[in-house]
Computed example of a mutant assay.
Amino acid sequence: MQELTIRKLGNTKFKNLYLQFLRGDEMVDSNIVKLLAIAVLLLNHQAPEIKRLGYRIILFYGNITGRYEALYDVALNSGLHPVSAVISKSFPEDDYRSNSFLRNIIGSYIDTFRNQGIVLTEQQDALRTFVQSEYKSSSVVVAPTSYGKSELIIKSVRDNPDKRILILVPSKALLSQTKKRLIDADIDELGKIVTHPEMYSKERNNRAFVLTQERLNRLLNEYPALSFEMVFVDEAHNLLQGDHRSELLATMLCILGARDPETSFKFLTPFLCDELNLRVRYLDMTPKGFRIDEYIKSERFYVQDFRYEKKRRKI
C-alpha cells in the first residue's frame, strides 16, 4: 500500500467534502458521518500532518455543532488532558458519563496531571520532569508558543534558591514581561530582580537576572568575576540569524561558559530542526534535547480575493 499524503488525499472526493465542512455549508448527516469516519482513520495514521488533519476535523466538528463527545475521546487518548477536563464539565447531569464509574476513574487520572490548579498535557508533564532532572546539564527545549516555557523558568528559579540564574531575552518587551511573571509568582526570598547593569551590587544577594545581550555585555564588562550557575536563553533560534545581535549573544554565552565551566545553559525555542544547531563555537557544551510534538491548537486560514473583477469569496 502506498503511503498516504496530503497531496494524495486532495485528489480524492474527501477534498470537496472537507471544503464544504469548512465553509459551513449545509451537509446531510450521511456526509458528516463519512467525514468523522475519515477523521478517525487519519488520527490513526503515522504521518504527523495527516494526524493533525484528523484532529482538526474533530475539533471543528465540536465547535460547529456544540457536540464535543468525539473531541473528548480523542483528547483523552492523545494525552491532551486540559481539553478533556474542560469538556467533562459540560456534560449534562442526566448524561450517563456524568456519574459513571468510568468517568470517576478518568477524572482521577486527569487529576494526576494537575499542578497548582492547572491541568497539564502528558508532554507538558514530561517536560517539567525533564527540566527538573537536567538542572545541572545544558538542554534545548523545542515547544510551541504559550506552551509553558515561562513556567519552567519560574519553577527553576523557585527550586534553586542557592543558584544565581540569568534569563536572556531578545527584547525590552520580553524583559518586562518576564520580570512581571517572576514577581507575580511570589517566589520566597527572590529579592530584587536585576534588569539593568546599574541595579546590580556585589553587596546584595541578587539571584535572578533578566537581561538582553546588550545589557549583559555591559554588566560582564563592569564585573569581570560575575558568573551564573544557570542561564536560560529565550527565543534561542535567534542564535542562527547571523547578524550583529546573534554574534553578541554567542559571545556572551562563550564568556559565561569560560567564567564558570559548570554553568548549565537552557535554550528555549518554538521551532528548531536539530538541537545541535545551537552549539556555539568555543563553548564546551552538548545539550540534550526535548521536543514537544503535541497538537492542541488548530489553525484556521481565511482566503479573500479583493480584486475588482473577481467575485468576492471567502473560504
Rank of each mutant, 00 (worst) to 15 (best):
E222Y: 10
D162Y: 07
A143R: 03
G107R: 14
I187E: 05
E122F: 01
T121R: 05
L175H: 10
L220V: 08
V131Q: 03
G117W: 03
D188L: 07
F113D: 09
V140E: 01
V157W: 06
L168Y: 02
R181E: 12
Q123W: 06
S171M: 10
S201Y: 12
E222K: 14
R164I: 08
V119L: 02
Y223G: 03
V231I: 06
L211I: 10
T112W: 09
P161M: 14
Y147P: 01
T195I: 12
L220Q: 04
I167Y: 07
P144W: 08
R215F: 10
L219T: 07
S176I: 12
E134N: 15
K163P: 00
K180T: 14
A225D: 15
Y109K: 11
Y223S: 03
G191S: 15
P144C: 10
T212R: 08
K163S: 14
L190E: 03
Q132S: 15
D125N: 14
S156Y: 05
A208C: 12
E203H: 13
P224N: 09
V119A: 02
P224T: 05
V142D: 01
V119Y: 07
M230H: 02
G107S: 14
A126H: 08
T121Y: 06
V194W: 10
V157K: 04
L120N: 08
A225K: 15
R207D: 01
Q177C: 05
L216Q: 09
L211Y: 07
I106N: 05
F113C: 09
K180G: 04
L220E: 00
N206T: 10
I106S: 04
N217P: 00
T178Q: 14
D111R: 15
V210P: 00
N205W: 07
E189V: 08
L226T: 02
N221W: 08
F228D: 02
H196A: 14
K202V: 12
Y135M: 05
L120P: 03
L216E: 06
Y135N: 02
P144L: 11
T195D: 03
A185E: 07
Q213F: 03
T212E: 10
V157M: 06
Q177E: 13
V169L: 06
T195F: 08
I167P: 00
Q116H: 11
I187G: 00
V119G: 04
V157S: 03
E214M: 09
S171Y: 11
G117P: 02
S227G: 05
A173H: 09
N115P: 00
Q123N: 13
D111H: 12
K192I: 13
H196P: 08
N115Q: 14
E151G: 07
V194T: 10
S138I: 02
S139L: 15
R207M: 03
V131I: 15
P161I: 15
S171Q: 09
S156E: 11
E198R: 15
V169C: 04
P170Y: 14
V140A: 00
F113Y: 15
F232E: 01
I118C: 01
K202L: 14
V194P: 05
E203N: 11
V169M: 08
L190I: 15
M230Q: 10
I167E: 08
E151I: 12
V119S: 04
R218C: 06
S137G: 04
A173V: 14
N221I: 10
E189I: 09
S176E: 15
R114P: 00
I193Y: 07
G107I: 04
N217Q: 09
T212N: 02
